[in-house]
Design a binder for these strands. Structure first.
Lengths: 172, 172
DNA sequence: ATTCAAACGTTCGATTTCAAATGATTTTTT
DNA sequence: AAAAAATCATTTGAAATCGAACGTTTGAAT
C-alpha cells in the first residue's frame, strides 16, 4: 500500500519514528493535519485581516456571534465558541474596553448577562467580516468546490461526534 | 439544491443571517467547521488524557516533537508547531521547570538553543502518547476508514496551500 | 579587519485561556 | 416559608500566545 506519497515530509518522518508502536497511524494523520490546518488558518487571518483592526481571532469570533445572535447570554457565547465562561468574561471585558460591546444584566434573571454590539461594534464587524470571509475563501480555494463540500461534510461529521459523549454508556 | 440537510442548526442560522451579503458561504462553512473541530479535539484531549499528567496541549505537542526529532533547535520547534519563537521559549521554560526538558546552547553556533528530553520527559511522552493516540482514534473513529483517508488528504492539501504564499503574485 | 546586516533566543506587556473558588440569584426540597 | 441545591458570571492564579524591542552572535560587505 503506497501511502507514503500522500504524506508530507515531516509527517512521514514522524510515522517512521513511531512505527513499531501499536498506534493508529491514520488517526494520527487526521488529527495532526486537522490541528495544523486550523492553526495556520488562524494565523493567516490574524495577520492578514484582523491585526490592522486590533482584533484577535477570538475577539472577532465573539463579535461575529453577537452580531448574528443579537443580545445573547454569556453562557451561549461560551457554548457556541467552545470556550469556558471565564474566557468569555475576559473577552467581553476587552471588547467593552474597546467600545465594541455592551453588557447588561437580564431583567428576568439577574444571574444572566446579555451582550450586544455598540454601533461602533456593528460598524466594525460589518467592515471586517467580508475581508475575513475573503481570507476563508483563499484558504478553501486550495480545494476544488466538490472537495470543499466534502471537507465541510467530513468536519461536520467529526464535530457531531463530539456531541454524543456518554449516552451509549448510560444506555447499558 | 437541498444543502440545508448537510448543515447543523447553528450553521444554518448563520447562513440565513448573512445571506444577502456577497460572501462565500461554502468557504465560511469549511472554515467554521475546521475551527470548531480543532477546538473540540484539543479540549477533549486536554480533559481526557493530558490533564491527569498536568500537561497542556501545547506542552504535549512540544514534548512530542522533541521526542521525535531528538535535540532540536528552538526555531524548528516553532516552525513545526506553527507558533512564534517567543511561545516556544515560554513552553520550554515551563517544561524545564517540570524537569521534562533540558536546553543547551549549540557549540557550533552560539545563537542557537537545542532542546532535548530528560529521562523523565522520555518516560512521560512514552507513557502519554499511546493514550493520546487512543483519543485521536476515538475522534477519527466517527468516520469510516475511507473517510478518514479522504479527510487527511484534504487537510494536507489545505496545509500545503499555506506554504506558497506570494509566488503567484510575484509571477505577474 | 571593521563595519553592517541578518538571524537567533529572550524579555516585555497585553490578551487569551482554563480550572477552581467565590458571590449572587434562582430553583428545588423539605 | 425556610433550607438546600443548582446555576450564573466573575475573580484569581497560572500558563499560553503574540508582536515588538533587545542583546548576542554570526555572516557579508567594504
Amino acid at each position: 500500500m503506497p501511502i507514503q506519497e500522500d504524506f508530507s515530509g515531516a509527517e512521514l518522518e514522524v510515522m517512521r519514528r513511531v512505527s513499531g508502536l501499536p498506534i493508529d497511524e491514520l488517526a494520527l494523520s487526521v488529527a495532526s493535519n486537522l490541528w495544523r490546518a486550523s492553526q495556520l488558518f488562524k494565523q493567516k487571518l490574524e495577520r492578514e485581516v484582523l491585526r490592522e483592526h486590533s482584533l484577535s481571532f477570538s475577539s472577532f469570533s465573539t463579535l461575529f456571534i453577537i452580531w448574528i445572535w443579537g443580545p445573547i447570554e454569556t453562557r451561549e457565547i461560551a457554548k457556541s465558541q467552545a470556550v469556558s465562561k471565564a474566557t468569555v468574561t475576559s473577552l467581553l471585558i476587552t471588547l467593552e474596553k474597546h467600545g465594541l460591546v455592551k453588557r447588561k444584566v437580564s431583567k428576568t434573571d439577574k444571574r444572566l448577562v446579555l451582550a450586544e454590539l455598540t454601533s461602533a461594534g456593528r460598524t466594525m464587524i460589518e467592515w471586517v467580516f467580508p475581508k475575513f470571509n475573503q481570507g476563508e475563501a483563499d484558504v478553501a480555494g486550495t480545494l476544488t468546490e466538490p472537495e470543499q463540500l466534502e471537507l465541510a461534510r467530513l468536519l461536520r461529521k467529526v464535530v457531531a461526534g463530539f456531541q454524543i459523549p456518554l449516552e451509549q454508556e448510560v444506555a447499558v
